[in-house]
Computed example of a mutant assay.
Amino acid sequence: MASFISHLSIDCSDAYSLSEWWKPVLGYEDEPGDPNLPGHDECLLVDPEGKGPTVLFIEVPEAKSVKNRLHLDLRPRTDLQDTEVERVIAHGATVVADRRGQYGPVTGWVVLADPEGNEFCILRSPAEVQEQPAPVFG
């Protein structure tokens, strides 16, 4: 037997505010019938298409102090990577490291942080991945 991932949990100082920040980034919404409200110490977001994992924000007393050991890698659903990076920065994310093109002209990612400092990456879109030429083996 094996286990499956029920949801991703993100520790934070303000579950409601951080869940509200992440809603437009992921295109997620509150769980139907159980809205997130200010003051809730746990807030759950779900993928309205039912394809992605649920994300649970849990208030903890400790502040973030080191780099995440686990982080989200996001792939734009429709926009190109550059467009998505700019959208999320305009929403309030900060750039931690820009690795676009570091490993060739069509590879790489951008490491960003949410308002509480949790790191996440934005990868290339599915269309950009398909455009990448196949490797040539000698």
Rank of each mutant, 00 (worst) to 15 (best):
K67P: 00
K67S: 11
K67I: 06
N68I: 01
N68C: 11
N68W: 01
R69K: 13
R69G: 14
R69Q: 15
L70C: 09
L70H: 07
H71N: 08
H71V: 06
H71D: 08
D73Q: 02
D73T: 03
L74Y: 08
R75F: 01
P76G: 07
P76L: 04
P76F: 05
R77C: 12
R77H: 12
R77F: 12
T78H: 12
T78R: 14
D79G: 05
L80S: 11
L80E: 13
Q81R: 11
D82A: 08
D82Q: 02
T83S: 11
T83G: 08
T83D: 08
T83P: 00
T83L: 06
E84C: 06
E84A: 13
E84Q: 08
E84T: 14
V85Y: 02
V88S: 10
V88N: 03
V88C: 01
I89R: 10
A90C: 05
H91W: 15
G92M: 03
A93G: 05
A93L: 06
T94Y: 01
T94D: 10
V95Y: 10
V96G: 07
V96Q: 08
V96Y: 13
V96P: 02
A97H: 15
A97W: 13
D98H: 14
D98A: 14
D98G: 15
D98Y: 11
D98M: 14
R99A: 12
R99T: 08
R99Y: 15
R100Y: 02
R100Q: 03
R100S: 06
G101R: 03
Q102H: 06
Y103P: 00
G104M: 02
G104V: 06
G104R: 05
G104F: 01
P105V: 12
P105W: 08
T107R: 09
T107P: 00
T107E: 02
G108D: 03
W109L: 12
W109K: 10
V110R: 12
V110M: 13
V110S: 09
V111M: 07
L112K: 09
A113F: 02
A113H: 00
A113Q: 03
D114C: 05
D114W: 07
D114S: 04
P115I: 04
E116P: 03
E116C: 09
G117Q: 02
N118P: 03
N118W: 05
N118V: 10
E119I: 13
C121V: 14
